[in-house]
């Protein structure tokens, strides 16, 4: 178990190195350097000014050396100009000179809040409807639930979002325009401010869980051991929830791991639809600004969460299914 964990964490570190190196390289390959220098230098840029900018941004050194400075800086901290940047140092933004770590930390609660609420909603409703559909398979409930899932899953968020805002905010006036409030300030405001984006995310993600839960449960229900459970005289609830759903958990957790990774990396479209400033929006602006340190920061954070979510999923497999051995 411990060996498994250590090995997997080493793997995560290795993949992070590769991912960050590729991002770093792609920035230069896509001549992000030119555009960032042009942005900083302005219209009347002389070659001397240009060199000064490059020097100030630390772009004069060889690529690998720059990469090494970035990586070692994360752990050891580094000095950039007059500013000191402590662990975990991801550098300073090219665009606004902000400390990248601080900016990311600043934006992160929005993304986490979006993710948590959405996950809770789509898991509850998706799995609930899936179980219901499996229990009543072939009947009306099943058809309504799977049909609803199909419909909701095929609505893109950039259609759904504006539609919801138009309907619930502008026409019916049931809620305010989505806004992020700190949970610690006022949990109620936090929840009501994020309700619309949560519902949107739930609507598009839920479909997957309805269909996955339903189909895996139907598979499990045809297993021999389910017949044994019925022969033991167990009630329907016991057969479906305690046993059949337990058998369907592994695939659900697999998909959930991927989804959490995606949500933590920032839901770009959702955030921009509802003008929420999370990691997703940060990713977009850093790319349009050719803001290398910010880009690197976002990529490293997003990649870490994706991989951690998958590591947790692998650990959960062993908890869910006693036949699984971690090795």
């Amino acid at each position: 178990m411990l060996r498994f964990l250590v090995r997997r964490l080493l793997g995560v570190a290795a993949i992070l190195l590769v991912v960050s190196l590729i991002t770093f390289y792609l920035f230069f390959a896509a001549s992000g350097e030119d555009s960032v220098v042009r942005l900083s230098c302005g219209k009347n840029c002389t070659p001397e000014m240009r060199e000064t900018v490059r020097h100030n941004l630390g772009l004069t050194k060889p690529l690998l050396e720059q990469y090494w400075i970035f990586i070692s800086g994360i752990f050891a901290g580094r000095n950039i100009g007059e500013k000191t940047c402590n662990f975990p140092c991801l550098g300073y933004s090219f665009a606004n000179n902000q400390n990248v770590s601080h900016t990311v930390a600043d934006r992160f609660p929005t993304t986490v809040s979006l993710a948590i609420g959405a996950v809770v909603l789509f898991m509850t409703l998706g799995i609930g409807l899936g179980i219901l559909a499996a229990m009543r398979r072939g009947k009306k409930t099943d058809k309504v639930a799977t049909g609803f899932a199909l419909l909701s899953g095929s609505a893109p968020i950039y259609v759904l979002g504006p539609l919801f805002i138009y309907l619930f905010v502008q026409q019916l006036g049931w809620m305010d325009r989505p806004q992020y409030h700190q949970f610690t300030d006022d949990p109620f405001q936090w929840a009501s401010g994020l309700l619309l984006p949560w519902i949107c995310l739930m609507t598009i993600h839920m479909a997957m869980y309805v269909r996955l839960t339903r189909s895996t449960m139907v598979d499990v229900l045809s297993e021999d051991y389910v017949r044994t459970l019925k022969a033991k005289g167990l009630s329907g609830r016991s057969v479906y929830i305690k046993h059949a759903f337990r058998g369907a958990l592994s695939p659900i957790v697999t998909v959930l791991g991927v989804d959490i990774g995606v949500l933590m990396s920032g839901t770009i479209i959702t955030e921009s639809t509802f003008s929420l400033h999370g990691i997703g929006m940060l990713a977009v602006t850093s790319v349009t600004d050719s803001d290398l340190p910010m880009m690197m920061g976002v990529v490293v954070i997003a990649a870490s969460f994706t991989m951690l979510a998958n590591l947790v999923v692998d650990l959960l497999y062993a908890v869910i299914d006693p036949r699984v051995r971690l090795s």
Partner: peptide, 24 residues
């Protein structure tokens, strides 16, 4: 019937590996 199953009439099946739940 459920009250009878397992209580007054019970059953054993052919393949005990697939007839027992792997999760409990």
């Amino acid at each position: 019937l459920r009250d009878l199953r397992g209580r007054r009439i019970s059953m054993i099946f052919q393949d005990p590996l697939t007839a027992l739940s792997p999760f409990y």
